[in-house]
């Protein structure tokens, strides 16, 4: 198993990174760190894909011109282009998601003054209780 891991070292590093990123996303309590964790996980998965497209000793998938005109089109010259295409799509997706979640985080911070989602819940329940207490007081006053 260890030899295989050494052979697949890019993939091994990628899954370690994605594990770290996933854990950050799940269990960090600070939202900014959660979002950084998301980005780490995404890039790690893309690293995994890009490593899967690599073939030893081949060139980047941009056609090379032959000496006498025309193009070198043998498939044994270039690496696999599919993972690169998928990762390009993925990078766009992850930047969109990052921007969206940061925007929501800022709105949350405006309301509660905290980046911690559990503290926000605490403050929310406190505020609600205060509001209810106020309403009750007002009702009592009206009755009196």
């Amino acid at each position: 198993m260890l030899e295989n891991l050494l052979l697949n070292h890019y993939e091994a590093a990628a899954v370690i990174l994605s594990g770290i990123g996933l854990t950050n996303l799940l269990l960090q309590r600070n939202l900014i760190k959660k979002i950084i964790g998301l980005n780490i996980m995404d890039t790690a998965v893309y690293l995994f894909l890009a490593a899967k497209g690599y073939v030893a000793g081949r060139a980047a998938p941009i056609l090379i011109e032959k000496a006498g005109g025309g193009w070198l089109t043998s498939s044994s010259i270039y690496v696999n282009p599919v993972p690169a295409g998928l990762v390009l799509t993925g990078i766009v997706v992850s930047v969109s998601v990052t921007a969206f979640s940061l925007a929501l985080t800022l709105r949350l911070y405006e309301h509660y003054g905290t980046l911690n989602i559990d503290e926000a819940l605490l403050k929310m329940t406190q505020e609600q209780e205060e509001l209810e207490a106020k309403i009750e007081d007002a009702e009592e006053e009206v009755l009196a």
Partner: peptide, 15 residues
Amino acid sequence: LLRSPDLAITEAAVG
């Protein structure tokens, strides 16, 4: 290093 220049440019500009 993994022969994906498209990704490298995009990651440098975006990530």
